[in-house]
Simulated scan of single mutants.
Amino acid sequence: MENWDELSVTEQVLVRRAVNGTSPRGSATHVTAVLRWAGSPAVPRRRNASPAEESERVPELAAAVLRLVADGWLTVRRALSTRFVQEDGPAVTGTELERLVADPETWLLPRDERNDLPVLSLRATDEGRHRWKAAAYAPGVPATIHELELTEDEDRIRVCALEASGWLTGNWGVLADPPAESAGEELRAFVAAQIAPLVRFVRAGMIEVLHVPEPDAEGAVIPLKDLLDALCDRELRCDDRDDWGVGFTCILTESLSNALR
């Protein structure tokens, strides 16, 4: 299993996290997001995995990391900090590794402020990093959104998608409200011009637009074909509401291309 293309999506995500020196915690959510954007029929179309779905993915993650360790892609190490992965600690091997990767607490983000859990890191080996880089920067691999030359308006959309608090519409949105008197084709022309930078990224699969009807509600994905109609709907935009967290937002997709890099 030395060829990147022979790795499963789950294994590719774990290698990429290991290249970054990331804690295994949160990997269940990350893998589920990448599978969703890859079109897996087993993954529901929503932004985050539920706690139950995360727990169900633990055996898959455990088996994947054991294969990757055995094939020289990565190591699992103890982190020297209780909160952040900053330096390499001693490698975890053998039966201890098998026990830890089978433990859901290794993979799931804690639901409270517990600080007594062991902190581990995924670290790519030199060979694993070499194999990843050969695939990530091979000729023809699409550039990520961070590598494109962007206009000021396009970069504003990119930053909005990158930030958890970023909104397209509403009092905190990066898109201006349409003129109050505009309607019909005039309104559509105004919104079409305004969302042109956004459309570029949605069409390329780099950004996903979601509509959130109420604070803390789950966002519904807006397909590209419905984007203009949706953003022309003043009621959906929630421009006249004072609530934070309603209306349209956008997020960077965890696409296979982004998972690779």
Rank of each mutant, 00 (worst) to 15 (best):
D5V: 05
E6I: 02
L7F: 14
L7H: 13
S8A: 07
L14S: 13
L14M: 15
R16S: 10
R17S: 08
G21S: 08
T22C: 12
S23M: 15
P24R: 07
P24G: 05
P24V: 03
G26C: 07
S27H: 04
A28C: 05
V31S: 14
V34P: 12
G39W: 10
P44I: 01
R47F: 09
A49G: 12
P51C: 08
E53L: 05
E53N: 02
E56V: 04
R57W: 06
A64Q: 11
A64P: 12
V65T: 15
L68N: 05
G72V: 04
R77F: 03
L80S: 06
S81R: 06
R83S: 12
R83L: 14
F84Y: 15
D88T: 03
A91Y: 04
V92L: 14
G94Q: 04
T95K: 15
R99Y: 13
V101L: 06
V101A: 10
T106N: 13
D112C: 03
E113F: 03
R114K: 05
N115M: 10
N115E: 14
R123G: 02
A124E: 09
D126M: 04
D126C: 01
D126F: 02
G128S: 12
W132K: 10
K133R: 15
K133F: 11
A135D: 10
G140H: 06
P142G: 07
A143C: 08
L148E: 13
E154W: 01
D155C: 00
D155Y: 01
I157S: 00
I157H: 00
R158D: 01
C160D: 01
G166A: 00
W167V: 00
T169E: 13
T169D: 13
L175K: 01
D177S: 14
P179L: 09
A180K: 10
S182D: 13
L187I: 06
L187P: 10
R188S: 13
R188A: 13
F190S: 04
A193I: 01
A193G: 15
Q194W: 01
I195A: 04
A196T: 09
L198N: 00
L198A: 00
V199N: 07
V202M: 07
E208S: 03
L210D: 03
H211W: 15
P213S: 05
E214T: 10
V221H: 04
L224I: 02
D229H: 09
D229K: 12
L236K: 15
R237M: 00
C238Q: 14
C238L: 07
D239A: 08
D240C: 03
R241K: 12
W244Y: 03
W244R: 05
T249A: 01
C250H: 02
T253A: 03
T253Y: 02
E254L: 09
E254W: 14
S255V: 01
L256V: 07
A259G: 05
A259R: 00
L260G: 04
R261Y: 10
